[in-house]
Design a protein around this nucleic acid. Structure first.
Length: 876
RNA sequence: GGGCGCUUAGCUCAGUUGGUAGAGCAAUAGCCUUACAAGCUAUGGGUCACAGGUUCGAGCCCUGUAGCGCCCACCA
């Protein structure tokens, strides 16, 4: 039973991990009847490496969870890997230099290029199957590295309970969810203008939108009425002029009343378009007249839906101006030859180039409708405006008509707000963000993505005898067959040979939004739909820890799914963590994260020290990376170690075992005061931790511990150094043992390594082989009532010792310097209290024999007047 | 434009129901003290963003203002 002389966290790190592992310290007990505590762990996105932001929020969860385990809950703490979706595809593309092309054939014995160099090597197009295999290979490797880092951080995860969002289990549940929603009539597919990312070649959802400030310009364009009168419209998107379907002004705008119901002609394309009244147009903006194009923005889409006018689609899925012919179909023109001549100059151009080109055309002197002037009036006026982007995209979103699957949300706003009210939000004000989001929804959840590495829709579509695909009567997979891949599997009752044939079928080629799967994390962990007995035990979860920027996605979608499937809330409490900010107070970014990796910090400080830093930040509070706090954490751990060493040494010296202490030996006021104080620390910190206020609890524990080291240990030292094991020493030893054990347990959720290291050398026994197999301290253990006299003894003694230190320091003397006379003037009560600790006090202060003098005072009970006269020399 | 949060010592932050402003770091001055010099002791440092109000009393409650951060919406 002994600790190493020096505290070296690195030496014991691995050993301690092994202890946790071999004792199955964090294993969920499937058969236990005790109250569970279920964590809906965020599955980190597997696309590179974990950074300090992850360490921050996951540790906060771990602290809460370790506490719950110690108070006796049957903790279920799984770990998932979110490896499906765009981030993974993008990483795989860049890592191996491959790109998915569904039309390419599978390769035999496909070898991935681990040494891909973007400067030298060409991008290789591979089949869907090969691409998915590459995704699986790389994410599997990443997941190994992630697990190692989580273990090092000391997350008390049950590593038997892991899943990945792309594995068969997750695919099955994700598809099951889709089928359940189909049965409940909560999903539909629809061909309609949808937000489209031209680079990713996929639809995206409202929740993935991001506004970005971009330079733009107002272009004033001259239109003409059929009757010959001219007017001006202002537009930031002149390249959409060929897609103009109408021009509108506000109904009350007097300038344009005379035009309403008549026809205007567009420049360059001579397209006749109706002039209509619309509330959309604001008279004060520009000329008060605006053009409606298919489609410049969401307003155009909404307006078009009401108007019944045909679509003029000029942009293709790649963001390129597609070939069309004026004079045909919707593209009416009063001068098709001229229109086509102009349009041909735009065909094949990317939107940006097309804009440049059309501005040139509009600026030419004969571009107006009557051919007498330029249609572009004046110079374009440059502005900065916000433009909608896919949050992971590089070019602005376009609205392009495509067929997509949607999950109904707009019909359920009220119910979803109610569900939000049933959940406890920490901090409380984060609920408002959820509510704002729900209230502001304007589209159902677009859940299909035209990507490859994801969960397929369990859906085929029948083809009629004419070869037309019928999207409105999909063939759903049977539940027993899940998971299915409709691109390689055949729907019930069909043959593979019928794929793509008249009277046959086609598989849905799309995959689901990655959130469609991760919104099921509570059910993925509980095995919803596949193991009802287990699901009953593990659903709903107790806590959902997550970051605030994904309230509108992860939290929202999880609440949606849970409500639609079973009418329940997915978890009782949601814990919103803050952001890690770099020293310039900017959000920790991936590039910055790579500079300061968690491993670097673990090496330089210790996992415990980093954990301490995370524990100093409250939920929801953004926190700067602060080296000073890492240092503090390190110092605290050293202190815990050294104080433990001191206590253990006192037992060793006279051959006693620290486990054999007996609290009934405690008979000194000072020792009773210590125990009584710690009791209130236990009560208060437990209350805070139960409410997820781990920061408040830590402060209480820490303050008590530093006081224990600075004051109690100093006072009790001389008594405990006695060689004779008499009653007063026994009292000290029992108090020391119990308080050390208590402090170790109180600190254990925060700094598991150092507390475990000490535990192994002190209180470990067969039924408590690890500190996290021991129980949280309770007040009953000590059963000491705090009497006013204890408190007074303790605080008065502390006050005296503090005064003595002040005098010695001011005289630049060692704290060991002898005191010739210590005169304490105080009330009768204070005197009585101090007399009970007089020996401890006299020796700790090193007062000469007979040098401690009390004199009466009429002061208030607590007020002490202390005079110190130092000896001329050291003393003996 | 709507909403939420923040503003306390040089820095990073605590501050319970209103009752004499706190910690760590940094700075300064010291100390080999039988757990700890990677330690310890002490000292200095604040008009609690600003302006009103309620109250015997406001960092805390109310109203307004400003700055910072974030969420949402609008944006021809």
């Amino acid at each position: 039973m002994s600790l190493p002389n020096k505290f070296e966290p690195k030496v014991s790190e691995k050993l301690i991990q092994d202890i946790w592992e071999t004792n199955e310290t964090y294993k969920w007990d499937a058969n236990s009847q005790t109250e569970p505590f279920i964590v809906d762990t965020p599955p980190p996105t597997v696309s590179g490496s974990l950074h300090l932001g992850h360490v921050f929020s996951y540790t906060q969860t771990d602290i809460v969870t370790r506490f719950q385990r110690m108070i006796g809950k049957n903790v279920f703490y799984p770990m998932g890997w979110d490896d499906n979706g765009l981030p993974t595809e993008r990483r795989v593309q860049n890592f191996f230099g491959i790109k998915c092309n569904p039309n390419v054939k599978d390769q035999e014995s496909f070898q991935l290029n681990y040494n891909f160099d973007p400067k030298k090597d060409q991008i290789l197009e591979v089949s869907r199957k090969d691409f998915i295999a590459a995704c699986v290979e790389l994410t599997t490797k990443d997941e190994v590295a992630y697990e190692a880092m989580w273990r090092r951080l000391g997350l008390s995860v049950d590593w038997n309970e892991t899943y990945s969002t792309i594995n068969a289990h997750s695919q099955k549940i994700s598809q099951l969810s889709f089928l359940d929603l189909a049965t409940k009539n909560q999903v539909y597919n629809l061909e309609s203008p949808t937000m489209w990312d031209v680079d990713f070649q996929s639809a995206i959802a409202q929740a993935e939108l991001e506004d970005r400030e971009r330079p733009g310009a107002f272009h004033d364009l001259k239109f003409q009425m059929e009757s010959g009168e001219e007017f001006i419209i202002a537009t930031t998107r002149p390249e959409l002029l060929p897609a103009c379907i109408a021009v509108v002004a506000h109904p009350s705008d007097e300038r344009y009343q005379k035009f309403f119901g008549k026809t205007a002609i567009t420049p360059l394309f001579h397209a006749p378009v109706p002039v209509l009244a619309s509330e959309h147009a604001e008279p004060e903006k520009g000329s008060g007249m605006m053009m409606i194009c298919t489609f410049g923005d969401i307003n155009d889409v909404q307006w078009w839906k009401q108007s019944g006018l045909p679509i003029k689609q000029v942009i293709n899925l790649q963001g390129i101006i597609r070939p069309i012919t004026f004079g045909e179909d919707a593209f009416l023109s009063q001068n098709p030859d001229l229109a086509n001549k102009n349009y041909q100059q735009l065909t094949g151009l990317y939107l940006k180039q097309a804009q440049k080109k059309i501005v040139e055309l509009l600026a030419s002197p004969e571009s107006s409708v009557d051919g007498k002037s330029a249609a572009l009036v004046g110079e374009p006026k440059t502005i900065t405006h916000s433009v909608k982007f896919y949050e992971k995209g590089d070019r602005p979103l376009e609205f392009i008509p495509t067929r997509q699957w949607f999950i109904k949300t707009l019909d359920h706003k009220e119910a979803l707000l109610e569900q939000g009210m049933k959940i406890n939000w920490h901090p409380e004000h984060m609920r408002v963000r959820y509510e704002n989001w729900v209230k502001g929804l304007n589209q159902d959840w677009c859940v299909s993505r035209q990507r490859y590495f994801g969960v397929p829709f369990p859906v085929w579509y029948p083809i009629n005898a004419l070869g037309e695909v019928n999207y409105l009567t999909p063939i759903y997979a049977e539940i027993k067959d899940l998971p299915v891949d409709p691109m390689s599997q055949v729907p019930p009752g069909y043959l593979e040979s019928q794929r793509g044939q008249a009277s046959g079928f086609v598989g849905d080629p799309d995959v689901m939004d990655t959130w469609a799967t991760s919104s099921m994390t509570p059910q993925l962990a509980s095995h919803w739909g596949t193991d009802e007995k287990r699901h009953k035990k593990l659903f709903p979860a107790n806590i959902r820890p997550q970051a605030h920027e994904i309230i509108r996605t992860w939290a929202f979608y999880t609440i949606v799914k849970s409500w639609q499937h079973s009418g329940e809330i997915p978890w009782k409490d949601i814990l919103i963590s803050g952001w890690v900010l770099d020293p310039e107070r900017k959000k920790m970014s991936k590039s910055k994260g790579n500079v300061i990796t968690p491993e670097t910090l673990f090496d330089e400080y210790s996992p415990d020290a980093i954990r301490y830093w995370t524990a100093k930040a409250r939920l929801g509070a953004d926190t700067a990376i602060e080296e000073a706090v890492f240092k503090m954490g390190g110092k605290l751990c050293t202190k815990i170690f050294n104080a433990s060493k001191f206590v253990l040494m006192q037992f060793e010296r006279i051959g006693l075992n620290i486990k054999d202490y007996n609290l009934s030996d405690v008979n000194c006021e000072l020792d009773r005061a210590l125990i009584a104080n710690l009791q209130s620390v236990i009560t208060e910190s437990s209350k805070s931790l139960e409410n997820f206020e781990y920061t408040t609890a830590l402060k209480l524990i820490e303050d008590a511990f530093w006081d224990f080291c600075d004051n109690y240990l100093e006072l009790v030292k001389v008594r405990s150094y006695q060689d004779e094991d008499n009653a007063e020493r026994k009292s000290a030893m029992a108090a020391l043992a119990w308080s050390l054990k208590t402090f170790l347990k109180l600190f254990a959720p925060y700094v598991p390594y150092v507390t475990e290291e000490v535990w192994q050398e002190s209180f470990k026994d067969a039924s408590h082989p690890a500190i996290h197999k021991s129980s949280w301290p309770t007040v009953d253990e000590a059963n000491t009532v705090l009497k006013p006299s204890y408190a007074m003894a303790y605080t008065s003694a502390t006050e005296v010792i503090s005064k003595v230190r002040g005098v010695k320091t001011a005289s630049q003397k060692s704290l060991k310097w002898e005191i010739a006379e210590l005169n304490i003037s105080c009330s009768i009560e204070a005197k009585q209290a101090l007399e009970s600790v007089i020996n401890d006090l006299r020796q700790a202060a090193n007062v000469k024999d007979q040098g401690l003098i009390f004199s009466p005072s009429s002061n208030q009970a607590g007020n002490l007047e202390i005079t110190v006269i130092l000896s001329e020399s050291w003393g003996q």
